[in-house]
Amino acid sequence: MSTPPVKLFRINTGSCNGCDVEFVATAFVDKFQISSMNVELVENVEESNLLVITGPLTSKSESFLKKYISKLKKPYAVVGVGTCSISCGIFRDSYSINGPIDKFIDVNVNVAGCPPRPESIAEGIAKGIKVLELKSEGEETPQKIEQILIGFEAPKKFRGRMSLNETICTACRTCETVCPSTAIKITKTQNGFIHNIWHNSCCYCGNCAFFCPTGAIYSTNNFDTVKLQNEKFSDLNTGIINLSTCSSCGESYMPPSSGLLGKAYIHNNLKKLNKSICSKCRKEENFKRMYA
């Protein structure tokens, strides 16, 4: 093997240091497989051809980042590590944040996570190297690169990509309210709601799942968050929450979730409850039952 090593330089543009700490673990703990790649950490940005950038880009870092970018020699590849680097994540809309970094440099690979697992950071670097190889051969960055590193698993409880069970979601917007990084948006449509989780803004904290009254939103242990730049805005979980038609009056209504009903009707037999009618009709039915 005589190919020269890939020269990696890391830039922290204002991260909480989680990604940088985990980068160190990725670089020096053998099980994360970096040692199997032909990578070398360099001291000068001039020599580097693989940039790893973390953080949401603070205003003070901006001019220095630009200066460092101007010293790079082509071809080079850029890997953004951590949700902040992709969308500024939880720090977005602060007076001191000028990112995300792709405003100033062409990013090739994004590694979402808060912080990402070292396994994901390693995968991101592997994909960055792949992009660099293609660039050196004068080829374009592909639309998709398949998983490169294999054999990684996550524990059952790992808080990975969020998912939604549409059938028990009532679009109550609790998740939207408690999400610290505006990663969830619920939009009203004609016949219901659309529930979107944008994985590249998510800080994987599990707050939404913890506070969800019905258990509809939950974290999976899927840590496949290493994506190419062209997937930045489409890496979504979309849930469609439909309204039901009341069997009594024909109006559209949001059916109550079994979770909420269980809380509200502790002493009654839930099975007897007619769930196919709207709350207005149920009120009338109850009134008739009791007083008529």
Binding site: T13, G14, G55, T58, K60, F91, D93, S94, Y95, S96
Partner: peptide, 10 residues
């Protein structure tokens, strides 16, 4: 100041 993210305002 490179890591100042204005968190007290956030």
């Amino acid at each position: 100041g490179f890591i100042h993210r204005g968190m007290e305002s956030l």
